[in-house]
């Protein structure tokens, strides 16, 4: 079971989170055309290796967060809040280990 670092609460077990999909795809502007929305909704890379994904800390602070995870090894490479820069300290020792 993965140990994910919530940037708000610290490292927690995977059971506290819901997977939230590919974080490299941006939701288009509402006025964007059909093709742009089609690509955003359906087209995915499915990489083998590092991948940034959304998770939501549903059992804790309810925040959407980003986790950079190696899909091949399950190694956690970085984490971050819903927006803004990500930290590359995967253990989150900067935070509180709760």
């Amino acid at each position: 079971m993965l140990r994910l670092t919530c940037p708000h609460c610290g490292p927690r077990d995977q059971v506290e989170f819901n997977y939230g999909g590919d974080a490299t795809v941006a939701v288009p502007d509402l006025a964007a055309d059909e093709q742009t929305w089609f690509d955003a909704v359906y087209i995915r890379e499915n990489p083998r290796g590092p991948h940034t994904e959304f998770w939501q800390h549903v059992a804790g602070c309810r925040q959407w967060i980003r986790i950079k995870r190696n899909t091949q090894t399950h190694e956690i490479l970085a984490y971050g809040a819903a927006t803004g820069p990500m930290s590359d300290d995967p253990t989150g020792n900067g935070g509180t280990d709760k």
Partner: peptide
């Protein structure tokens, strides 16, 4: 819960949201 409840880690004043059994 999978929180670390050791006396050195879960200390008075801590306030954690977590899953306890099935429950948020």
């Amino acid at each position: 819960s999978t929180i670390d409840f050791d006396q050195s880690q879960f200390i008075p004043g801590d306030c954690v949201g977590t899953l306890l059994s099935h429950f948020t």
